[in-house]
Structure formats: structure tokens, C-alpha cells
């Protein structure tokens, strides 16, 4: 199994260090959630893993292989990314964009064949985007584009999928559909997901493990119950919340109370 392993990774934009000495390792078939406040380095972590941003120090490996030794194509066959606000070429059809996911699997001059087409169609079915196939990307809504990029990432047939706020633009039904799909794929096929998530409740419901980042360092790591605690949220976000077990599956559920903010006025 190819697991993603970070050892003492430091990432910086110029002199501004965003992540300092991060170490983590994914386990097979798990959904690993990354949570933390805005600017804590969730997106930067994804850039580091995909080599868009060079490492300042440390080492990232997949299945024991140092990623800096892999070609861009080799890396893209192992890792797929679902970016937060992807720029998509407006004139291309949705299907063409999904089919671009096959790029790392094709030779330089090789054209997509029937196999590539059916993989892409399958991904579109999984993400319920097949009805968009012939539409131009410029006509799609933010949520449709987000599901399209998930379809593209699945078309890549990666071992590891990195999701940067995959549900940010989605309605609640698609949030559930999308994360259900990711969780199912991880459980059934040899896929591991690393998802940067904003919503603590979604993270608690879908992630096998959660890493909570704070100021470029890992604040807490472990099962949802161990990480999503009132104390951690107070320390990291500076917010007062109420954590209760979910009435059906007992997973920690974050409840907010109006007027509980720093400058809030008690309403209850």
C-alpha cells in the first residue's frame, strides 16, 4: 500500500514560514481530515505534497518513495488534487475537463481511447455530473464545477486524493453525496483521502482520523472524539462551543450558541 508520509516538513513562502516541522502518515483506506482556522496552512500543505511549493526542509514520501525523485507524471498517477477554487477553461466541455484526469496515464503522443472515455464517464456517474458532459464549463455553477473537479480527480485513478475544502460550494445534499462517495471509495477501493475541511461536523462524521492545525503546527491528532473537543476548539479557534455526541452515531458534534462570541451579548 502506498501511504503518504511527511517527516519534519517545513513549508514557506519566501521567508514567511507557514508550516513548521509537520510529521504525519496516512493509513491505508482512511479519510484523514485536516482542520484548523483560516490561514493555518491547510492549502499550503496540499501544495507541498504536490510539489507546487518546494519544501524548505523535511521529506515527503509515498510508499517509501521520496516525491522529489518522481516525475510530475509519476506523482500525478499517485496523487490527485481537488482544488478549492479551480480555474477551469470556460470553452471546454465538462467531459473534456474530466478526461484531462487521464493525462498522467497517457504517453506524450497518445490519444484517449475507449478505456479513457469509459473511466471518465464512470467518474462522472459517481459524482452525478454525467448530465453536464456536453455543457461548457463557463456555464456551470460553482458547485457543479467542484463536483466536476472531483470527477476529474477520480479519473486520475490515484492512490491518494487530496481535497481542499471539497464541499465549500456545495448544497447540503451534495455535501453528503460527495463525502459519502469519498468515504465509500476509500473503504472499498485502495484509495486514501486527505481532506482539508472547514466544517468540524463534516470532519467528525466522515474522517477516520483528524489532524488539527494551529499556527503551522499540529495541535491535536487522533480520532474525531479525541480531536474535536471544546478545549481544542477554544485553544485553536478561540471560540466557545458545545460538543455533544451525535444522537445516532455518537460522533462529536459541534454546537454553537448565538451570542457566545468574544464580543457577543448573552441571548440565552
Amino acid at each position: 500500500m502506498s501511504s503518504l508520509k511527511l517527516q519534519d516538513v517545513t513549508l514557506a513562502y519566501g521567508k514567511r514560514v507557514v508550516l513548521r516541522n509537520i510529521s504525519l502518515e496516512t493509513r491505508a483506506n482512511e479519510v484523514l481530515g485536516i482542520v484548523g482556522p483560516n490561514g493555518c496552512g491547510k492549502s499550503t500543505l496540499i501544495k507541498g505534497i504536490t510539489r507546487v511549493l518546494g519544501l524548505s526542509s523535511g521529506c515527503i514520501s509515498i510508499g517509501g518513495q521520496d516525491i522529489t525523485k518522481l516525475s510530475a507524471g509519476e506523482l500525478a498517477r499517485l496523487i490527485a488534487v481537488v482544488p478549492q477554487n479551480p480555474v477551469l477553461p470556460e470553452a471546454f466541455t465538462a467531459f473534456e475537463v474530466v478526461l484531462m484526469g487521464r493525462t498522467p496515464h497517457l504517453g506524450f503522443l497518445q490519444y484517449e481511447g475507449q478505456r479513457e472515455v469509459s473511466i471518465a464517464m464512470h467518474s462522472m456517474e459517481l459524482t452525478q455530473t454525467q448530465y453536464l458532459a456536453e455543457r461548457r464549463v463557463g456555464e456551470l455553477s460553482g458547485g457543479e464545477k467542484q463536483r466536476l473537479t472531483i470527477a476529474r480527480a477520480l479519473t486520475q485513478e490515484p492512490r491518494i486524493i487530496l481535497l481542499d475544502e471539497p464541499t465549500a460550494h456545495l448544497d447540503i445534499n451534495y455535501q453528503i453525496e460527495t463525502l459519502d462517495l469519498i468515504a465509500d471509495l476509500c473503504a472499498q477501493e485502495s484509495l486514501t483521502a486527505l481532506a482539508a475541511l472547514h466544517d468540524l461536523n463534516l470532519a467528525a462524521q466522515y474522517c477516520d482520523r483528524i489532524i488539527m492545525l494551529n499556527n503551522g503546527q499540529i495541535q491535536a491528532e487522533g480520532s474525531p472524539a479525541a480531536v474535536i473537543t471544546a478545549q481544542n476548539i477554544r485553544d485553536v479557534y478561540g471560540a466557545e462551543v458545545c460538543i455533544r455526541p451525535h444522537p445516532i452515531n455518537n460522533l462529536p458534534t459541534t454546537l454553537i450558541t448565538a451570542g457566545n462570541g468574544k464580543n457577543g451579548r448573552k441571548r440565552w
Binding site: 507546487v52 507524471g73 500525478a76 498517477r77 488534487v81 475537463v97 484526469g101
Partner: peptide, 18 residues
């Protein structure tokens, strides 16, 4: 060039040596 019509970051992540 098709893949590079996504942004450079996505092209890189799709295996193009941008």
C-alpha cells in the same frame, strides 16, 4: 496546452512539467 488551460498549479498536479 489543453491541460495548461487549467491554472499552472492544476496542470502540475495533472502531471505536466509546467
Amino acid at each position: 496546452l489543453n491541460v495548461m488551460q487549467l491554472d499552472e498549479e492544476q496542470a502540475q498536479q495533472l502531471g505536466i512539467n509546467v
